[in-house]
Simulated assay, not measured.
Amino acid sequence: MATFFFLFVHVLDTALVRVNPETYDSVIETYKNPVVGLMELGLVAMVLYHALNGLRVMLVDFWSKGPQYQRVMLWTILAIWFVVMIPAAGRIFYNMFAGH
């Protein structure tokens, strides 16, 4: 649902560029606050986990030893998720508080 909502809002606000560029700029300016930044961080976290877990599920389904190693693969994708989320969160927090 979060991805759908993001895409819906993204299409609508991007369409404003053709209608009225000043309104587009004002709408984009409203996104530069910590609440939207935290929502963006949550969206990135969910999409990244979903992608990594999808790889794990494919390995469990299509690799003969997948079921045997599914717990190890779960911890592996969680570790990869955590390592990738550190710089992603850093960049989002930078945009929220320092990088206007």
Rank of each mutant, 00 (worst) to 15 (best):
Y69A: 04
L16C: 13
K65S: 03
A89F: 09
A2D: 02
H100E: 14
E40I: 03
L74A: 09
L52S: 02
L12F: 13
H100V: 08
R18L: 14
R18F: 13
L43P: 01
M46G: 13
N53V: 08
W63C: 08
N20Q: 09
T14D: 05
K32V: 08
I77A: 01
G66Q: 01
V17G: 06
M73P: 02
T76V: 04
R18I: 12
Y24R: 15
F62M: 04
A51Y: 07
L41I: 09
L55C: 10
A15V: 14
T30M: 15
I92K: 05
T76R: 02
M96Q: 06
P34R: 07
A89V: 12
T14N: 14
A88Y: 12
I80A: 05
E22K: 07
K32W: 05
A98E: 12
S64T: 13
N20D: 15
L38A: 08
L52K: 01
G42C: 13
V36F: 05
N95I: 14
Y94F: 10
T76I: 02
F5V: 11
G42P: 09
I86F: 04
R71I: 13
F97K: 00
L74N: 06
D25I: 03
N33I: 07
A88K: 11
K32H: 11
W75K: 03
N20E: 08
T30A: 15
M85K: 03
E22D: 13
T76M: 06
G66L: 01
P87H: 12
T23N: 03
F93H: 02
A51N: 09
P87K: 09
V11D: 00
M96S: 04
L38C: 06
G99N: 13
R91I: 03
A79P: 05
E22L: 14
M73D: 06
F4G: 01
I77P: 00
M46E: 06
I80V: 12
I92N: 02
L55K: 04
